[in-house]
């Protein structure tokens, strides 16, 4: 490792100043659960590291008017423990709980999970299904964009060299709405998602889908919203038939997106079960 300088950031301004000064020579480190492995394998060779894991302002989950804001260096353990991540937001809690191991969750952060741009990032599908935005700060500027716009390609995010992911925001969820999450991993703990799906659901009085948003992970270059499935389910009652038909549309979408991949036959079949499980978890938690 050719690291020449390391800084333990004490506040945001100091971090933004360093990012502005060192630009591409610099990497942000929070939990380090991915970065330290990359450094060891020399997949990344930054000259400067800036640690943000102990900056208080970058931790925590709070209500901001009609929004919930999660700060960038909030750990998965903090998300799991938060009272604001309630029964309606069970999908966010379950996604955070499904990451790595207790040790990883104590260190790994929501900002890191997003900015790595991993296709299998577990926290991303629930945040996409919540229509989240991200607040990006740099020395003299800040901008807010949708989380969806942040993802450019596998491992590539729309983050400028001097920008820091400050927080993630989404609208508070009402009593008649729910967010669910379902994941297929190869084992119970420490499983990287083979695929995962998150569903945001609101039914009207006649039990028809008033609002439905579906996002998945490990089924594309990054987390993806499944708009064709959403459009199909909108205004329909969720019964065996419509769920089955939704699953088939999802399969078609994935066949198209993962064309030529060796994992396609497996994922095409598996996605059906995970989709149905995410929908039924949403329905279970809706009352």
């Amino acid at each position: 490792m050719g690291i020449r300088e390391v800084y333990k950031g004490r506040n945001i301004d100091e971090v933004l100043e360093l990012l502005d000064k060192y630009r591409n020579d610099c990497r942000i480190i929070a939990g380090g659960t991915d970065l330290v492995v990359h450094l060891r394998h020399k997949r990344l060779n930054p000259k400067v590291l800036v640690d943000i894991s102990d900056i208080e302002e970058l931790h925590g989950i709070k209500k901001e008017g009609e929004f919930i804001e999660i700060k960038g260096a909030t750990t998965f353990t903090e998300i799991v423990k938060s009272n604001l991540v309630n029964k309606q937001l069970i999908g966010l809690k379950e996604a955070a709980k499904s990451v790595g191991s207790p040790q990883i969750r104590n260190r790994g952060t929501i900002g890191g999970n997003i900015c790595n741009g991993s296709p299998a990032a577990d926290i991303v599908p629930p945040l996409l299904a919540l229509d989240s935005t991200v607040l990006l700060k740099s020395k003299n500027k800040e901008r807010e964009i949708s989380l969806e716009e942040l993802f450019l390609d596998k491992g590539k995010v729309n983050l400028k060299e001097n920008e820091l992911l400050y927080s993630v925001k989404f609208k508070k969820i009402n009593k008649n709405q729910v967010l669910s999450f379902s994941k297929l991993g190869l084992r119970k703990a420490l499983a990287i998602s083979r695929l995962c799906i998150s569903v945001f659901l609101e039914l009207d009085k006649s039990k028809e889908c008033k609002r439905v948003k579906i996002a998945d992970g490990a089924l594309g270059k990054h987390g993806v919203r499944e708009r064709k499935v959403e459009e199909f389910l909108l205004g329909k009652r969720l019964n065996e038939e419509t769920i089955e038909e939704g699953a088939i549309i999802l399969q078609e979408e994935i066949s198209h997106r993962l064309q030529g991949r060796l994992s396609l036959p497996f994922k095409k079949e598996a996605v059906k079960g995970v989709f149905k499980s995410a929908i039924s978890k949403a329905l279970e938690n809706l009352h």
């Binding site: 380090g32 330290v36 590291l49 102990d54 104590n106 260190r107």
Partner: peptide, 16 residues
């Protein structure tokens, strides 16, 4: 007070 993997923490992060 919390368990961590010491192979994934850089020593300078453990300052304090």
């Amino acid at each position: 007070g919390d368990i961590v993997n010491s192979c994934l923490v850089l020593a300078f992060q453990a300052d304090g």
